[in-house]
Amino acid sequence: MRSLAFLGALVLSLGASAHAAQVYKWVDAQGITHFGAQPPEGQAAQPINTQAAPPASAAEPVPADLDEQEAPSQQEIDEKVKQQVAQQEAEIRRYCETLRTNLAQLQNNPRVRVEENGEVRRLGEEERQARIVETTEKIAKDCD
Rank of each mutant, 00 (worst) to 15 (best):
V11N: 10
A64F: 14
A71E: 13
N117I: 11
H19Q: 08
E79P: 04
L10D: 09
R2S: 13
A44C: 02
H19N: 14
I32Q: 14
V114N: 09
L123P: 07
F35V: 04
R131W: 03
C143H: 00
W26F: 03
G118M: 01
T33F: 02
L99R: 01
T136I: 02
Y95L: 07
R113F: 14
W26Y: 06
T98R: 12
V62P: 06
G118H: 00
Q129I: 11
Q43C: 06
G36F: 03
T33R: 07
K25C: 13
V27G: 11
H34E: 00
D78K: 05
A90G: 11
L99D: 00
S73R: 01
L66Q: 12
E79I: 05
Q83M: 14
E91A: 10
D65G: 13
K25I: 06
T101P: 03
L106P: 00
L66D: 10
E134F: 07
Q30S: 15
W26K: 02
A90T: 13
Q129E: 08
R2Q: 11
T33L: 02
D67S: 15
P61Q: 03
D67K: 15
A20F: 03
L7P: 09
N49W: 14
C96L: 01
R128Y: 05
S57C: 14
G42L: 00
T136S: 12
D144F: 07
V133M: 06
G15F: 04
E89R: 09
G124S: 06
T101E: 12
K141A: 15
D65V: 09
G15L: 11
N109F: 04
A64M: 14
R131T: 04
A52M: 09
E137M: 12
N117Y: 07
V23G: 05
S3F: 09
I92S: 12
S73H: 01
E76K: 06
A16E: 13
N108E: 04
K25S: 13
Q22N: 09
D78G: 08
V133T: 14
P110H: 00
